[in-house]
Design a protein around this nucleic acid. Sequence first.
DNA 1: TTGTAAGCGTTATCAG
DNA 2: CTGATAACGCTTACAA
Lengths: 341, 341
Amino acid sequence: MATGRSIPTLEDVARGAGVSTATVSRSLNSPERVGEKTRDRVLKVVEQLGYTPNFAARVMAAKRSFTVGAIIPTMENAIFARGIQAFQEELYRRGYILLVSSFLYDPTIEKDQIRNMVARGADGLLLIGHDRDPDIYTYLEKQNVPSLVAWTYDESAARPSVGFENRSSMEKLAQEVLKYGHKKIVAIMGSSKTNDRVRQRIEGIKDALAQHGSNSEYLEVVESTHDVESAGDAFEALMRRKSPPTAIICGNDVLAVGAVQRARKLGINIPENVSITGFDDIELARIVNPPLTTVHVPHREMGRRAACELVDMIEKQVPGNSIELETTIMLRESLRSPPPS
Amino acid sequence: MATGRSIPTLEDVARGAGVSTATVSRSLNSPERVGEKTRDRVLKVVEQLGYTPNFAARVMAAKRSFTVGAIIPTMENAIFARGIQAFQEELYRRGYILLVSSFLYDPTIEKDQIRNMVARGADGLLLIGHDRDPDIYTYLEKQNVPSLVAWTYDESAARPSVGFENRSSMEKLAQEVLKYGHKKIVAIMGSSKTNDRVRQRIEGIKDALAQHGSNSEYLEVVESTHDVESAGDAFEALMRRKSPPTAIICGNDVLAVGAVQRARKLGINIPENVSITGFDDIELARIVNPPLTTVHVPHREMGRRAACELVDMIEKQVPGNSIELETTIMLRESLRSPPPS
DNA sequence: TTGTAAGCGTTATCAG
DNA sequence: CTGATAACGCTTACAA
């Protein structure tokens, strides 16, 4: 029945210090509004009892949770792990804590998790990409929970985002591929179904082709799931064709690494036989052999800036500004001129 | 003043459905205890109003938050990212949500974050390794918050853990190194200061040396921080010696990759000139050239099992069982016989 | 099966 | 500067 020693509450502290609960609360939250002597006495009792405020009660009374939720595809891709790591560090610095959920690229799960986090009183939400059921945005507005989109920057979007231009970044990369004289280019991309970043990257490649006078309608895109193995399969299928591509633009580094590894297994030389490019510039990109030509994305910076912006939105009750981060093309050995045909 | 439309509460639903708040609560939490007709009516109103329960209020009333906290060194190391990913997936399946904090290997921050999570009403905590200020355990007991240690398995420890034997795993690996005839072995490890896993791995190497008749006191351990660059520096310093080691056992794959990459830069061939081993078997281990001989750790399995166990501890109010997971040695090209001297 | 009402531990308002 | 006291929104005996 009795759980032995129970957890001390504000009231216990108040009793111990011979003051009211209000005074204890003030001593803790706005010490300047309490007499020095009283405060010291209160803090001593707090220490003695090992009092920790009850969070739920505080949230309910203050209507603030100092909690931020992040709903991401998966932590297993280093781009999210890094970005979220930086996001969390900045949040911690500002007195917030992070609730994390991954939805494994399943929009239904994502939706569920968004509701869940709101219900749990998250003060704000970090979302990846703009592309989701509009109901979600209506819901968030109704609940008055600010949300910020990251991993993309889109001026045309209605809501603020912190990230980079997926389309033009990929275009720059594709330009490089074209400069090397490639004509037979195929893209291996993750599913574009509920993923605006993927769609934009595809558009970026087409932009480059169009500028180059190529007929961009001819861009072939092979869809792959987000893992090394599946990208390897896609790569293998392409290379077994009678007339294989001379360059393969992958949607991200993980896919590109999958292609490179499979190439090695098949005895296909990169870049002699075929060029491969990635996107993100994760650690893997420099470690794989040959190192990947890819687009460098400042993931940590993005996470950190997103945290700053989101906290501002929460605390200042402002709509939030979009922030564009620059990407840079990293030219490495996986790209070179096509083999003489 | 008036915030326009405000968020619907239980009471709004009750009013809308013409029932009491208790009935609404029951319709949501234990539907079987409510008449079918009433329940349907209630749920319809819930839908209409877009009602979501207020989490803080629920926590306060039920004294349960369905939230679990994980306090890890960093998400940037893939071993934690993967393990935590699986941990979160299982938690989600069981109706819990995950609060994540990283402490960047700083025990002061860790302590702070533990208190923070407890204050926020986490129902249970996942911690990495046993090694921390005993006050923390006293505190957790006093607050009656169950905690589970992962990434290690230690029978001798007072508290339950889900993980693997760091010591004997490393011993197995070191045995392999010795089998290849290496005599000059040096270890590059992360700081062992507040890290029992590191200490155990060092002991493991010594165990192997002792069994092999070598004088284990002679094991030299070079300390590195947890990044590729620092490991590279350590490696370089070792190889510049008059009499460099023939095998370098690294504390984990990240350090080993740092050594391999630096070797390439210096024109040192692995494994011809020197063997290198890792620990963890993250993706990187297979992708680096040459691929690493390392210890495979079932990170996802560990995360998943930890979630199961921790939820059991929370729900059944039991002390919790330790679970030992098996590791396996992955022999790959980075290890071979020492060069003829 | 349903309703009533007493908490849960804070914060915030308003007096003093 | 300090103290009462009313919320905050939900769960859960207990009663009907």
